[in-house]
Nucleic acid binder design. Structure first.
Lengths: 156, 156
DNA sequence: CTAATTATCTTAGTGGCTAAGATATATATT
DNA sequence: AATATATATCTTAGCCACTAAGATAATTAG
């Protein structure tokens, strides 16, 4: 799974390269495609970038025609970033090889097996979120106060 | 799975931050921990960085005491990068929360289910590699010659 | 009505990256 | 043996995305 993750990052870098945007820009596009739209602040949260950096990200994406800025009428401090479907489709095409490869993999599993994989994907995501929280707690604890850390033992 | 991947990247950024190294530096450390040792050129390959950038990565890692350079006696152009286990252990501790969280997830699955997950992890990795190759081919094909790209349809 | 908070943008400065070329070693050709 | 080409790493100049700090504008609280 770690290797897949690393290889997936390389795939993303290649896509960003071809699309003429940075890796962070693409990361934001991915999130926007999942959520439809998001405020600049939310993008900063999910990417771990500062709000200043996000201004740059959105500037580049807007200039390239991938997104639009839209001020929220209810709270005029907020800026919603929304994807422009037509231009974004061009980036989408670059993911087709990945989608086809994954569908090929999935096709080798029964419905029951796929249900298990879906359960694991869901559980795993919760686990990663949990780990992120635990890491924060660990870093808030001064090193000398930390309980001894032990990696869990493999079962065999 | 995409969300897990994205969250995993954030986890890595936090680890790199605390360890006082860059994301690319940590990416190389991860690979070195998997493989034991690697040449500078191999690190460039797996990270997608130039060899010049890798020189910088290794400089920083060596200065921080995480790795050592060792010239290959058989081919004195080559430089093997090897991890220093003692100092690297400090970084390893930062992954404990992730390992614990994942073990907690895995503990909820039977041996048979875990075998299926392992099979999927292996198949999935092959799929990602395949997709990377296919993307290269796609980019080598001039846009006007490309067959129409279609995303596979979901089964339902 | 003032103060504090929130959301985004601006600016100066930094650091990791690429591209091109230098250096050193290895392999192939004549 | 001598020369040419290839390979592996390092060096350098220049670029660009990022952070940190602060400015601006809008909202909420006292």
């Amino acid at each position: 799974m770690r290797r897949s993750s690393a290889q997936g990052v390389l795939y993303g870098q290649a896509v960003a390269n071809v699309a003429g945007i940075s890796g962070s820009d693409l990361e934001c596009m991915d999130f926007l495609n999942l959520e439809g739209r998001a405020t600049a602040g939310r993008l900063a949260e999910v990417t771990g970038l500062t709000t200043g950096a996000i201004t740059g990200v959105v500037d580049r994406l807007e200039k390239a025609g991938y997104v639009r800025r839209e001020r929220d009428d209810a709270d005029r401090r907020k800026v919603f970033i929304t994807v422009v479907p037509e231009t974004t489709a061009e980036i989408g095409k670059l993911y087709v090889p990945m989608q086809q490869a994954m569908h090929k993999v999935w096709s080798r599993y029964s419905d029951e097996e796929l249900r298990l994989l879906l359960r694991f994907a869901t559980d795993g995501y919760k686990g990663v979120l949990e780990a992120t929280e635990a890491l924060k707690d660990l870093l808030d604890t001064p090193p000398e106060k930390r309980a001894d850390l032990k990696t869990p033992k493999p079962r065999r």
